[in-house]
């Protein structure tokens, strides 16, 4: 399972990537939408974990762009905000179960990743 982590908080994504790696998941991380689009050009990913609030472009738009480049890619949204609009929009994009609010426990995240990967 190859996972792409996109979040502007480098401290967060780098640590998360390391922890996922410890659990046998190949995780790459980027901190902006350009880098994300870039890396997707070169490497395939099964799942992308996107922050809803990204600088310059929000997670939803990024998701659509990534989908074009890599059809069949799955997405989980991660947010620190949890406003109603975000929730509604993200639920509509990827299902309400794949909308997680920070901070998220690693066990929960692992479960979600496995669940979505099985589909």
């Amino acid at each position: 399972m190859r996972v792409l982590l996109v979040d502007d908080e480098e401290e967060l994504v780098s640590t998360l990537a390391e922890r996922l790696a410890m659990r046998g998941i190949t995780a790459s991380w980027v901190t902006g939408y350009r880098a994300a689009l870039d890396i997707v050009e070169h490497e395939p990913f099964d799942i992308a974990l996107l922050d809803v609030r990204l600088p310059e472009m929000n997670g939803l738009e990024l998701k659509r762009l990534l989908e074009v480049k890599r059809p069949g890619m799955k997405f989980i949204f991660l947010t620190g905000h949890g406003s109603e609009e975000d929730f509604n929009a993200c639920s509509a994009e990827s299902g309400r179960d794949y909308y997680l609010i920070k901070p998220v426990q690693i066990e929960v995240l692992m479960a979600k990743l496995n669940e979505i990967f099985q589909q």
Partner: peptide
């Protein structure tokens, strides 16, 4: 939530 998430991940790590 954002710094909390970082603490969470660091401690988790």
């Amino acid at each position: 939530n954002n710094p909390l998430a970082i603490i969470n991940e660091k401690a988790g790590l």
